[in-house]
Amino acid sequence: MASESKDTIDSRPGELFVPAEEEYSVDNPDEMDNSEDVGIKYTILQIKEDTTARIGLYIVSIIMIVAIYATIDAQLLDYAIAERFWYHPEFDPDSPEANLPPIGITNAYGEGTVAHPLGTDHRGRDILARLVYGSRVSIQAGVFATFIGMAGGIIIGSVAGYYGGRIDDLLMRGIETLYAIPFLVLIIAFMSAVGRDLVIAMVAVSILTTPVFARLIRSEVLSVREMAYVEAARASGLRDYQIILRHVIPNSFASVVVQATLQIGSIILLIAGLSFLGFGAQEPTPDWGAMLADSRGFLLPNPWFSVWPGLAILITVVAFNIVGDGLRDALDPYIDNSQKEDEGRI
C-alpha cells in the first residue's frame, strides 16, 4: 500500500509536491527581467523609441545648449565671446547695415551678407546673435518659473490632498481664486505695483502656475493616500510630513513631471507675450518677445525681422510639448507597457 502511493507521487512530482529546497525561492526567475521597467534610464529609453519625442528631445537639447552657452558668456565672461565673434554695432541707428535681409535675399535696404546670415534689425544688430542670446531669457524664465510654480503647487496640493477636510477646502479655494482673475491683467497689475523686471515677471508667472500643479498633485494624492503603504507608514510611526515627502509625493510625481514639461512651453509663450507688451526683459537685453515687439514697425520693408524670433518661439514651444507628450506616454503604465505588466506576475 505504501509503495503504491509512493509510486503515484513519484510519477507526478510537480503536481503534488513543492520540493523542500524550493521552499524559499518562490520567485520565478523570468520575473526578475522586469527590473528595467522603471527608473530614469527606462523612461529615456522609451522616449528614444518614440521618433517624434526623440526629435523633440534633440531640439530641446540644442536650445538648452545654446541657452547655457549664452548664459555663461553673458554672466561669467561679460559678453567676451560675443564681442569677439558676433559683430554688433550697438546703439548706432545710422548703421548702414540696418534692416538687412537674410543671406541670398535683396530688399530696399540692400543685399543679405554672410556676416549676418539672418539679417540685421532696425539698429543694425545681428539677428542671429540676438536670437542666440535671447534664448537665455526664454529658457531661464520657462524653467525657473515652472520650477517655482511646481514646488509651490506640490507643497500646497499634497498637503491639501493628504489632510483633506477643512485644510483642503481652505488651500484649494484660495488657490482657485487665482483662476478667477484674468491672468494677464493680474500679472500686469502685479508688475505695475512691484516693478518691471524679468525676475518679477518670472515670479508672477510662477504664482499663476501654482494652481495647475496644486490641482494635479492633489488629485493624485487623493488616490495615493488610500494605498496600504501610507497606512503602513502611519502604523510604523512616521510623522505626517515624512509620509508626505517619502511616500505621497514620490508616488504622485509622474504626472507632475509631464505637466511641468508641457508647462515650460506655455510659460515661454507667456513670458514672450509679456516682453512683447513691455513687461518682460527690458532693453537692451535681447529677448524673443521684445524682438517681436520691435519688429512691428518693419513688417513691410523687412518681414524677416519678425519671422525669426517668431519661429524661435514656435520651435521651442512645440519641442517642449512634444517632449512632454513623449514623457507622458513613457510614464503612463496603461500605454504600451501594459502587456509587459501582465506577464510573469503572481
Binding site: M227, A228, Y229, E231, A232, A233, R234, A235, S236, G237, L238, R239, R246, H247, P250, N251
Partner: peptide, 23 residues
C-alpha cells in the same frame, strides 16, 4: 507615534502588493 507605533506594536497589512512603496 514615537513609543508605540512600529516600535512596540507593529502591523502587517492584508495586501502585500499594496503595502510597499513602489518607488
Amino acid at each position: 507615534r514615537t513609543q508605540i507605533r512600529g516600535s512596540k506594536i507593529a502591523m502587517i497589512f492584508q495586501d502585500p502588493m499594496d503595502s510597499l512603496n513602489p518607488v
